[in-house]
């Protein structure tokens, strides 16, 4: 099939960018979206042109590195799917596809479609952990956890940190990402001792990093490739309120 791509090109964080248009006459339905970019880049390189820079690594939807805003949607038209898992069979012959980088002031552009998501790491460093040194653990089965809680915690922990929530949120808010970690640890008995401190510290750094505010549009939940639920945002809101009232 024939695909026309309008891709955001930007040499680096300091120079302005613009859209370039590329036409691929022969795209296979079985290709992934990124493999289509491989083919395009191969062509560009052979012509001596600069290939399109984009982040990707595992290409099986788990590392969270790929990050394209495709036709107005984070990771493209398919829900529950990262860009690397999106296949061209979901597009039609003759389509024009607009591809942009994640846009948020907390995610500055590095080059073309690559952005810097280290703000997420800094939020985790502020408190997204349970303080237990290696070797201090008790026997794993001495902490029974109701299956339902463990499953809920798992659902939160499934976050891949790709940033689609920020990218898709009209406010560039990172609430879904932050709440997924807060909620995972709040649901587990191991996470209780630091529960209040954790949520306060993480929210503080989240705000410092320049993410926007949550206005509950719910777009993040829909566009999240791992289906992280708004339940976690509610839990974080609750914990945040309580921690501010209690302490």
């Amino acid at each position: 099939m024939k695909i026309t791509l309008k891709v955001w090109r930007q040499q680096n964080g300091k120079t302005p960018g613009n859209f370039n248009t590329y036409t691929l006459p022969d795209v296979s339905e079985d290709m992934s979206f990124l493999e289509m970019f491989d083919v395009l880049n191969d062509e560009l390189i052979r012509k001596g042109e600069d290939p399109i820079a984009f982040d990707h690594d595992c290409r099986e939807g788990i590392c969270g590195m790929c990050s394209m805003y495709i036709n107005g949607r984070a990771h493209g038209p398919l829900t529950g799917t990262t860009t690397c898992q999106l296949h061209m069979r979901h597009f039609n012959d003759g389509d024009t596809i607009v591809v942009e980088p994640w846009r948020a002031s907390a995610f500055p552009i590095i080059k073309d479609l690559m952005v810097d998501r280290s703000a997420f790491d800094r939020v985790i460093q502020a408190g997204g952990f349970i303080s237990v040194n290696t070797g201090n653990a008790v026997d794993a089965n001495s902490i029974p956890i109701p299956k339902e809680d463990a499953d809920k915690a798992f659902d939160a922990a499934a976050c891949i940190g790709c940033g689609a929530c920020v990218a898709t949120c009209k406010n560039a808010s990172a609430m879904l990402f932050v709440s997924a970690k807060v909620s995972q640890l709040a649901l587990l008995p191991q996470g209780q001792p630091e529960r209040h401190l954790r949520v306060k510290k993480m929210v503080e750094v989240m705000d410092e990093e320049g993410f926007g505010n949550c206005t509950n549009t719910g777009a993040c939940e829909v566009e999240c490739p791992k289906g992280i639920s708004l339940d976690h945002i509610a839990r974080m809101n609750r914990d945040y309120l309580v921690s501010n009232i209690v302490d």
Partner: peptide, 19 residues
């Protein structure tokens, strides 16, 4: 396994709450 559980790794569990 002990270390990971202490860190909050959500391993699969039985209904009794054990791993």
């Amino acid at each position: 396994i002990d270390q990971c559980v202490a860190q909050g790794v959500p391993f699969a569990r039985e209904y009794g709450g054990l791993l």
